[in-house]
Design a protein around this nucleic acid. Structure first.
Lengths: 138, 138
DNA sequence: GAGGTTAATTATAATGGTTATAAACAAAGA
DNA sequence: TCTTTGTTTATAACCATTATAATTAACCTC
């Protein structure tokens, strides 16, 4: 796997990033610095990194793939009010892989939670708006 | 919500069905008995039933929605060898909803497992083929 | 460094599951 | 039976993702 400026830029953008961006998000962010960057390159790079276990895909929403540079198993929480995706460190004991359940060999697992995040709960309690889709977590 | 022959047929097809069909699967199965049936009707009906909590969507594969008539929380297991989806009754204690984690209100959750099913493990042990995509469970 | 091989990047077209649309139709109640 | 209202149907649109093929750049060897 060759080292290219595009791949370095994508890796650098993802490093420590907890916003769970989509390929499109990454493309939009890097395009100004990399006018020649192609969306296909972003997809190719993410595919390669995910395949190598260096990041995980997050399929918590119906129609988009998000990406998380943290490869350690943890669960993801989608706030259905503001659409933000949060990392939660909780991970059930039963899901330590590899393991065996009813004769099946379990090699991998995903755990997605849905509800209302603490920030939105506070806003709603204060009589704030119902649907703060812009208020992503910091 | 009106009772129509199409909806009854879809409900009847799903009742007790553990094969986790897609909308397309249901459409293909029912089309012979219902020549006028439209794929859009299948989607509409599934959407309505899922919204009413009478069945659950299973988004265990990358690009297709599967449906499960069993609304009780349980986890889903995809065999990456034969592509079959199995129900597993295991459900971690921590995932009983509603609950609260780090101040977030959790209302719903999904748990997907990936690996090799017992049937494929047995086949592989016997020197059988690697990729029995046709061998769906009975 | 220069040359050659091989893989990556790019722009763009194609894919395909799902959703939207609007007209035709049928269920349920009066 | 009539009317209203929601449903079905066929089809077009949507849009995230993938495939394609030509161009370009990384990396190895000399």
């Amino acid at each position: 796997m060759k080292v290219t400026p595009q791949r370095l830029a994508i890796l650098q953008f993802l490093e420590g990033n907890t916003s769970h961006p989509t390929a499109e998000d990454i493309y939009r962010e890097l395009k100004p610095q990399f006018p020649s960057l192609s969306l296909a390159t972003v997809y190719n790079t993410l595919e390669a990194l995910a395949g190598g276990g260096e990041l995980q895909e997050v399929r918590i929403t119906s129609n988009r793939r998000h990406f998380d540079p943290n490869p350690v198993p943890h669960c993801h929480f989608l706030c259905q009010n503001c659409d933000a995706i949060y990392d939660l460190e909780m991970w059930p004991e039963e899901l330590r892989v590899p393991c065996e359940i009813d004769g099946n060999l379990i090699l991998n697992s995903t755990l997605y939670l849905y509800g209302t995040c603490s920030r939105c709960r506070a806003n709603q309690g204060n009589g704030g708006g119902d649907n703060d889709k812009e208020n992503e977590p910091g």
